[in-house]
């Protein structure tokens, strides 16, 4: 299961619209516990596949090292990655599986049609090694968030009515 806030969910979907018609990509930082990958932050990354950015993505390892370091400072691990499929379904491809190496991590794919984010799916990379790995559909749980402004408004209302 992949758990993330509505804000983070929206951020990674919007990223795919911003980079359209090219693929976007990014890293999901958070915690992994009992089969649940909980995302605390989605970090945008550059797509180095400028030769074929409409249907390929690659995150520079050097950027990953930096993002991993940022996460460590917050007590977060890399728990997944996201990318977009411009004008293509939100399903993993043979390329996605062949180039997925982070077992136990979530691979989130958003279909972007004519510049608008459509379906978002998440796939858990299961298996014990490269030889038996598989991408398996997992549930995405988007947690409701009370906007800060609404919280403040409620607090003020309480102080007024008290």
């Amino acid at each position: 299961m992949l758990r993330l806030t509505a804000t983070t969910y929206e951020e990674l979907r919007v990223h795919g619209e911003v980079t359209y018609p090219h693929e976007c990509c990014g890293v999901l930082l958070g915690r992994s516990e009992d089969g649940v990958n909980t995302v605390e932050a989605a970090v945008r990354a550059g797509n180095t596949r400028t030769d074929s950015a409409h249907n390929r993505y690659n995150i520079a390892p050097q950027e990953l090292v930096k993002i991993q370091r940022q996460g460590r400072e917050q007590g977060w691990d890399i728990v997944g990655f996201y990318h977009s499929h411009p004008d293509h379904p939100a399903q993993w491809s043979s390329t996605d599986l062949a180039e997925a190496h982070w077992l136990g991590c979530s691979y989130v794919i958003t279909a972007v049609a004519r510049g608008a984010a459509k379906k978002t799916n998440s796939f858990l990379l299961t298996g014990a090694s490269e030889e038996d790995k598989a991408l398996v559909t997992e549930e995405i749980v988007v947690q409701d968030q009370v906007p800060l402004a609404a919280e403040e408004a409620q607090e003020r209302l309480r102080s007024v009515t008290a």
Partner: peptide, 11 residues
Amino acid sequence: LSIIPSIAGGD
């Protein structure tokens, strides 16, 4: 030292 498996893919 950081060990970093690569991240790539595409449709």
